[in-house]
Design a protein around this nucleic acid. Structure first.
Length: 133
RNA sequence: ACUGCAAGUUCUGCUAUCGCCGUGUGCUUAUGGCGCAAGGAGGAAAGUCCGGACAGUACAGAGCAACGUACCACCUAACGGAUGGGCAUGCGUUUCGCGUGCAGACAGUGCCACAGAAAAUAACCGUCACGCGUUUCGCGUGAUAAGGGUGAAAACGUGAGGUAAGAGCUCACGGGUAGGUAUGGCAACAUAUGUAUCGGGUAAACCUUACGUACUGAAAUGCCAAAUAGGUGAAUGAUUGAGGGCGGCUCGCCCGAUAUUCACGGGUAGGCAGAUAAAGAUGGAUAGCGAUGUUCAUCGUAGAUAAAUGAUAGCGAUUCCGAAGAAAUUCGGGAGAUACAGAAUCCGGCUUAUGGACUUGCAGUUUUU
RNA sequence: GCCUUUGUGGCUCAGUGGUAGAGCACUUCCUUGGUAAGGAAGAGAUCGUGGGUUCAAUUCCCACCAAAGGCU
């Protein structure tokens, strides 16, 4: 776990059960162009403090190429910008499950998407610290 | 040299940084982590329209039903696909090329609006003969199918003979249909000859004939299996006993919730297999008109599962805009591997979407020899 | 990944081969002092797209496009 920018299998939200509970009982807010679902888990010893997933609805983007490209862009930006959030979480000894849903109808280039996604991460970090206090 | 048409091949390269997924290998604190090496998306991966492999279920055989296919031969694991041929038809630059189509309406049932006399064993008007009467004409009986403004379609066509009037009624020429014979061809079929016959269309209406097809799909199927709850059996403890049964009551008898431990089986989350070496690809030889087959050599080719194959910067094929120039080209700026599009068990086809680059063939134009 | 259904005026739906209709909505007129309701008249559709069968296609066949639903 020396690489700060990695995004391997263990850091992704993969279990169907976890995803279902996140959508059912997790909290949510909206920052353009994402709808963000998140769930904080306390007092559990887990190796990974931050699990992440991204979803693009099939109804809006019918072609698989568009869906894949959006997912790749989001994953790439998240990978570069996540260490700060992760650090604060590990200091608080908490686990965060995070799921983004892309709701915009256009496939925007990554340079436009980057500031928006950074905004999202900042807001998530803020919410985490609030609940801690 | 340019343009057009057809066929085929091919399309994210190099450097740096940060990352993703299998595989192999080494180290290690070993279901993990780290390092190294070699790899990692298409011609349609798409639509899911056909055909198979594979798996489970069903199944003696045969038939019915349902569904599909439909000129002939051949290829193939198989096909509704491909190849070669036949016939019909449309277009063109017409001894040829390109495209499209292909069982049966002489087995039976149905349908054919409007118009029209009539839409399928035709008879309203008409024509002709005979009889009667009120004799410029009308009525009745019979014959006939030449003519009749319709319609998508009107009862083989034209001419002659024939007749009371007419009619394939007869003849000549032509046309259609079904058998026969001869020749060529594996066959479809073609050519020639002669016989019989001539009352539409529709089978992508029901149907007939021939042939074929079990059903369900990898979320199939097989295996392992945590926690919790509950089931079955055994043991221990308690000696308490809710509740139920022996048709109503009492007694009595039987079952028995609850605690702990062990075992067994089902099975959820999850995991593993299925699952990536294949009706494989490339090249040569050979058989065949060809699809394709046989044989030899070489290669070893993605395997994810909220789903990898990417991002950023630079170089670069190419391309757009502006300026200079007769042109080649030069300079400046922009886009930059782009169109259509992303494997999900695997193959063979079909259909649909698509921007370039290159090769070959054919045709046309211009220039030079 | 696999399967099924549906596309008809602005909206909701009929229409089993013969030139497409109903209700609501729209326009004009009548009625009323005015509005609503009511009455009369009218307009509005290449039947999702493209081929084929047929004399003729919304209907039958094929391909494509779009929308909706189901299977864990």
């Amino acid at each position: 776990m020396t690489k700060p920018f990695s995004l391997s299998k263990s850091e992704r939200l993969k279990s169907k059960k976890d995803i279902d509970t996140l959508f059912l009982s997790g909290k949510a807010f909206f920052v353009f162009p994402f709808k963000v679902f998140y769930r904080l888990i306390e007092n559990e010893v887990v190796t990974e403090p931050l699990l992440f997933g991204i979803t693009v609805p099939k109804k809006i983007f019918r072609r698989a190429v568009d869906r894949n490209s959006i997912k790749r862009k989001v994953r790439e930006i998240y990978r570069v910008n996540k260490p700060e959030l992760k650090k604060s979480l590990s200091e608080q000894h908490k686990t965060l499950h995070l799921m983004l849903v892309y709701v915009d109808k256009t496939n925007m280039p990554s340079k436009e998407m980057e500031p928006l996604l950074i905004n999202v991460l900042k807001k998530v970090q803020l919410k985490c610290t609030e609940t801690f206090i």
